[in-house]
């Protein structure tokens, strides 16, 4: 698993990358009450604001971590936004992306580096 400075995690599954937010991010957000997901089959660029997460307290965005195509989104989050707090690293994945070149993932932090980053 890889981690971004925006507190997203990325996990490779075959030729797609699954993206979610870290436990640290979900705790900082507080109780999530609304999630807006991107459309499937859209091309996104790294840094694009593609998801909205709203907690009781505030709204925040999830940025596309890399260039690529959205190939799946987790509709369960729309009906049950609280999943983001319950299981941020598992059931509460946000979207899957297809990348042209998976080697770009090497530029992100591994788990130990991320732990140092948030310490």
């Amino acid at each position: 698993m890889k981690f971004t400075k925006e507190h997203e995690w990325l996990r490779v599954e075959g030729d797609v990358v699954v993206v979610g937010i870290t436990e640290h991010a979900s705790e900082a957000l507080g109780d999530v009450v609304f999630v807006e997901l991107p459309e499937v089959e859209t091309q996104v660029g790294a840094g694009d604001e593609i998801c909205v997460i709203e907690s009781v307290k505030a709204a925040s965005d999830i940025l596309a971590p890399v260039d690529g195509e959205i190939v799946a989104v987790n509709e369960k989050l729309v009906d049950n936004p609280g999943l983001v707090n319950e299981d941020p690293l598992g059931a509460a994945w946000f979207f899957k992306m297809k990348l042209d070149d998976l080697s770009v993932l090497d530029t992100f932090m591994d788990e130990d580096e991320y732990k140092d980053f948030i310490a």
Binding site: G30, D31, V33, V56, K57
Partner: peptide
């Protein structure tokens, strides 16, 4: 204190 460990939703 904006919240305690229970969180805003549970506190409410």
């Amino acid at each position: 204190a904006v919240q305690y460990p229970a969180g805003v939703m549970k506190e409410h």
